[in-house]
């Protein structure tokens, strides 16, 4: 086993301290009884209570969740199809344009995406609301799904698909019974990524939402624009908690799966 050098240990410690201290501070202050967020006045869960009585926040959370569910599912279907076409589809007319359009939203500033989509919706007379946010989120989440799925497809042994064809599958059968089950971890993480991005997005949602649909980030933003707010601290702590539990659980599950696999492979070789 390799021993870690002091330099590397310091880099990691400082790096992770930098990444985690701000979130930790936020969580701690969310239990502060004082309305002045930064002045500690004892432990309290008061702001959590206030948060759950705030109908506007709850409504926004519900809208956000629905938008995220629909848009990430749509993005997963479209993004997986796009990745498959790019990796396996060979040459076709407009391929460069296609991959350009697909990957550009990865880095395109949100303000440009949001503005352009809004102007589209207005010029075709589409009323802004949940539907328009879903369309917008699907478009940019699709790029992230495509990237994740592409990297899995590239590493995928093509002869597996050929073997399926050889054994009597049509192309679609081969995709459904061999390719999809094998790339499914990537498809799932693509979906999760799309889901999170949609939950998280402020700028595009601000452009494309209408008065009928306000998302949680829009609410948070208008609350914190001018200063810190204890209710938002509580909300942040809850969101951080959900993500932490989710990420730790999935990584534990996948770690166990990997360990099991390594053990089995060792057994098979002996």
């Amino acid at each position: 086993m390799r021993r870690i050098s002091w330099f590397n240990a310091t880099s990691l410690t400082l790096g992770f301290a930098f990444l985690y201290i701000p979130m930790l501070v936020l969580v701690i202050y969310s239990f502060n009884a004082n309305k002045l967020v930064t002045v500690w006045a004892g432990f309290s869960t008061r702001w959590y209570g206030e948060l759950f009585r705030n109908e506007a926040f709850l409504d926004a959370a519900w809208v956000t969740l629905r938008v995220a569910l629909v848009s990430s599912t749509l993005a997963t279907v479209l993004g997986t199809a796009a990745a498959y076409v790019l990796v396996r589809g060979g040459k076709f007319y407009g391929r460069t344009l296609f991959s350009g359009m697909l990957y550009a939203p990865l880095v395109m500033p949100d303000v440009i995406l949001g503005l352009s989509l809004l102007l589209l919706f207005i010029s075709i007379g589409l009323d802004r609301g949940m539907m328009t946010i879903v369309l917008a989120h699907t478009t940019f989440s699709m790029a992230f799904v495509a990237v994740v799925v592409t990297s899995r497809l590239v590493a995928f042994d093509r002869s597996l698909e050929e073997a399926a064809r050889d054994l009597g599958c049509t192309r679609w059968d081969a995709f459904r019974s061999v390719t999809l089950p094998i790339i499914s971890p990537a498809v799932i993480s693509g979906w999760l990524l799309g889901f999170t991005l949609s939950l998280d997005d402020l700028v595009i949602a601000s452009f494309t939402s209408g008065p009928s649909a306000t998302t949680l980030p829009i609410k948070i933003f208008s609350a914190v624009r001018l200063g810190v707010s204890p209710e938002i601290n509580a909300l942040s702590a809850i969101l951080i908690g959900i993500v932490t539990v989710g990420v730790i659980t999935t990584s534990l599950i996948s770690k166990r799966a990997i360990m099991k696999r390594i053990a089995e492979e060792n057994r098979a070789d002996t």
Partner: peptide, 13 residues
Amino acid sequence: VNMMFQSYALFPH
């Protein structure tokens, strides 16, 4: 016609 692949191409799942 069936083929035995060089990599075996066994379906891992």
